[in-house]
Design a protein around this nucleic acid. Structure first.
Length: 439
RNA sequence: GACCCCAUCGUCUAGCCCGGUCAGGACAAGAGCUUUUCAAGCUCUCGGCGCGGGUUCAAAUCCCGCUGGGGUCGCCA
């Protein structure tokens, strides 16, 4: 039975690197019909915070990475002490004040020296990197239990992985150097060690270390920015792994079918906001309008726009109109602001370009004609508009752009008549009549 | 500094294990089509095996070195 775990520490928010580690663990478990365990490594009482724990749990749920078991290391201190005591009794560990420290000589299993290398080596096999070796002299005695009675990271990790029967430890590359230390602990404890797989790290756009300075790192930030969880997950799985057949848009279920840990890359991958945005846009467009609308309502509310009582049929029309123009959910807010406001904010550049040449006469005429329409909709608005420009003997483009600016405040946007239909007769007529031209 | 890991278009990657097929796809960029604008969509273009040695009839692919990048060196996790 495949059992894997994701072991975040609630000393910070869930970041995208952690999310990807969780994702690969989850995929590995699902692909083998195994179990995915979430283990909270909260041994540091000082730095562990409840709010971070909640945020991690929420983030995992949002991403759709469900777990089969949830453990907290803070509930297991007695277990760690018991195993440390055993090593003490067996003479494999010694005390330094209150701390318990492992004698490395008691745990080290030294492999044959590699040809051409005189110093003894410790070798282990990584599922992604194959053979990894360390110089034994590099590995020092390790703290098992700290002076305050809490377990040290490597010790708690080994005890838990062994007791929880983790079959494969899939974690970030930054843990490679912990592996020989942990191997020594397994050996001393008499536990069988699991398989290991060390994932390449996610780098920032410049190829450097991921940090808050270089863009968003928290999963919750991506949610707030309007990314879909499926899109984030899809993007994350593409960082270091590639599904068959040159596919870029991959659902979790397809990923499970094609997942193979052997196919994970060894090299670090730079994070690309552009590609994430493209994937998000793809998901947005694939989504049917009613579902997207349903998703947009709570999102808008979080951003200060209450749409709960808005006519749902009309709202769906609006969503349909801007769907192909959205990269994130947040774009919906920007594109549709003119609909939900009484006073349009006119973009200064758009005004300068389209509302300087006086078209008061045309605007008044258009306003009056539109006012007279009984059944105001896309077709009737367009018909009225076209009839007017024919009468005036002008090109439609001479009026289209300035009317768009007057109605929406922007020089770009969906088709003008669709826009009118969605804005409604009253606001359309009013905004046209009130437009002032500045020379 | 020591130890460890890594290296294909600007970026993510396929190919590497089992050398031989114009090094394939995606994002970005550029051009065009479409068009009332902006998107979307479609078509095309640009662009890469880090360097140097081997091995071989033949190297992105195997070996060595160099360079470059990343990681770790806590009673943090």
């Amino acid at each position: 039975m495949a059992r894997v775990r994701f072991a975040p520490s609630p000393t910070g928010f869930l970041h995208i690197g952690g999310a990807r580690t969780a994702l690969f663990n989850w995929l590995y478990a699902k692909a083998q019909g195994g179990q995915f365990i979430l283990r909270i490594e909260d041994t540091d009482r000082e730095r562990s915070k409840r709010e971070y724990l909640d945020e991690i749990l929420e983030g995992m749920q949002w991403l759709g990475l469900s777990w089969d078991e949830l453990h907290k290391q803070s509930d297991r201190f007695a277990i760690y002490r018991e195993h440390a005591q055993r090593l003490l009794t067996q003479g494999k560990a010694y005390k330094d004040g209150e701390a318990v420290i492992l004698k490395m000589s008691a745990g080290l299993r030294v492999d044959q020296p590699i040809a051409g290398n005189s110093s003894p080596q410790l070798v282990f096999y990584d599922l992604i990197r194959d053979k990894i070796s360390f110089e034994v002299s590099e590995i020092k005695d390790q703290v098992l239990i700290k002076s305050d009675g809490s377990p040290a990271y490597n010790f708690a990790c080994v005890v838990d992985d062994a007791l929880m029967e983790i079959s494969c430890v899939i974690r970030g590359e930054d843990h490679i150097s912990n592996t020989p230390k942990q191997l020594a602990i397994y050996e001393a404890l008499g536990f069988k060690s699991p398989k290991f797989a060390h994932l390449p790290l996610i780098l920032d756009a410049e190829g450097g270390r991921m940090s808050k300075r270089h863009g968003a790192v928290a999963v919750s930030e991506y949610r707030r920015m309007g990314f879909l969880p499926q899109a984030l997950v899809n993007y994350l799985m593409l960082l270091g792994w590639s599904p068959a057949h040159n596919q870029e848009i991959v659902s979790l279920s397809t990923a499970i079918k094609n997942f193979s840990i052997k196919k994970i890359n060894k090299a670090g991958a730079a994070f690309s906001m552009e590609k994430l945005e493209w994937i998000n846009a793809q998901y947005l467009r694939q989504m049917d309008t009613p579902s997207l609308t349903k998703m947009l309502i709570p999102f808008a509310k979080e951003h200060g726009l209450d749409l709960e009582n808005f006519d749902s049929a009309r709202l769906e029309n609006i969503v349909h109109l801007v769907k192909s123009r959205m990269t994130t959910l947040k774009d919906f807010l920007a594109w549709t602001e003119f609909i939900f406001t009484d006073e349009v904010k006119i973009d200064p550049q758009a005004r300068a370009q389209y509302l300087t040449k006086n078209k008061s006469k045309e605007f008044q005429l258009l306003s009056q004609r539109l006012q007279q329409i009984k059944d105001f909709n896309l077709a009737s608005a367009e018909e009225t508009f076209r009839k007017l420009i024919a009468e005036l003997g002008i090109q439609s483009s001479e009026l289209v752009h300035s009317v768009r600016v007057a109605l929406t405040g922007k020089s770009v946007g969906p088709g003008l008549f669709e826009t009118m239909a969605v804005l409604g007769k009253e606001k359309t007529v009013q905004r046209l009549a009130r437009t002032r031209f500045q020379q």
